[in-house]
Design a protein around this nucleic acid. Structure first.
Lengths: 178, 178
DNA sequence: AAATAGTTTCAGATTGATCTGAAAGTTCAG
DNA sequence: CTGAACTTTCAGATCAATCTGAAACTATTT
């Protein structure tokens, strides 16, 4: 029978994994991250395979991705050829890694696409009938609204990312003086 | 050969759909939303099926979900038994719908789980060895940090959601006076 | 109350994402 | 250079999410 501590950790890992679906990352990657985040010591690949019951290949792939995101780092020990992995434990740093990656994958591409769509729709406008031209006008306005909003979001994210180390304090500062 | 306008719309819909993976919603739901967002007129189920090349069942399911999220609304026309659907076109309202739903699905459950994990880990502490107790201490600290951060995020989201109609202006106000 | 127009549901099919495990690759010590 | 220790890759297997389509259901008209 596992201890309450073990069960608590398992629950945390499972839940973090379940939420992964909403984050555009896969379950195993999220579980792996949770495992390292709550681990007192860096773990090696075999530790991870045993803890999450996954294959070596799967572990390797997901470790690599987490390293790419900047959420975990490789570590070495003197006189040991194995690699060990440790998670970033500063929550604010973690958050920045995630924001940076998601902005790159989501916000920027859609802004870029909207720009392309606007250019494309502007072509051939003169060849359209009156009714079609009205439709095009509405379409253009919708794209515009969205682009304006996304640019504001993007600027906000930039501000968050470049705000050095004020960390959680900055977030709190934004809040209404409750 | 479709007009530039058609191609532009198709591109926008496709791209919005591709990004859905990062949003925890499925591709069709995102495409359906994009289609309605850029449409000048409300569309009926058959229009949607034709535009996206999907089955009636699929259309029905995804329409329902979008209605649940509050991103589209049902509309009726005098002397017509069909239902028509229109997207919320105010970008700020749209954003609020999404934030509300995602907070409910992601932020709140993980905060709740962390609380449970903390309670669970606190049990049986006295039965642990010295080494284990140190591990438990670190684990508790990590959960703490995360909970603190998530509570700040949650409060920020609440502020955004309850901020009435200042809309994009508020977002901009947060930004550094560039 | 029967016919018609439209909507919803859900079992099974399809598709796409993820995982495995063995082979290939890499690094290092001797 | 060779072997040992470890890591990465990737073709095929597995699994989960999504989609289809036909039947069941609901609402409206005559």
């Amino acid at each position: 029978m596992p201890s309450a501590l073990e069960r608590s950790k398992a629950l945390f890992i499972r839940r973090w994994g379940e939420l992964s679906g909403y984050w555009g990352i896969n379950r195993t990657m999220a579980e792996l991250h949770a495992l390292l985040y709550i681990s007192a010591e860096p773990l090696c690949t075999d530790d991870i395979m045993a803890a999450l019951q996954i294959s070596r290949g799967n572990a390797s792939m997901n470790i690599r991705q987490l390293v790419d995101w900047g959420l975990i780092t490789r570590q070495h020990r003197k006189g040991d050829r194995k690699e060990y992995f440790a998670a970033e434990t500063d929550v604010w740093e973690m958050f920045q890694c995630i924001v940076r990656e998601r902005r790159r994958r989501e916000v920027e591409p859609i802004i870029e696409t909207i720009e392309r769509c606007r250019k494309m729709a502007a072509e051939e406008l003169e060849t359209l009938s009156e009714a079609e031209r009205q439709q095009a006008e509405i379409y253009g306005r919708r794209l515009n609204d969205l682009a304006e909003f996304l640019n504001a979001v993007n600027a906000l994210l930039n501000a968050l990312l470049s705000s050095g180390q004020p960390g959680i304090e900055m977030l709190k500062a934004i809040l209404p003086p409750s």
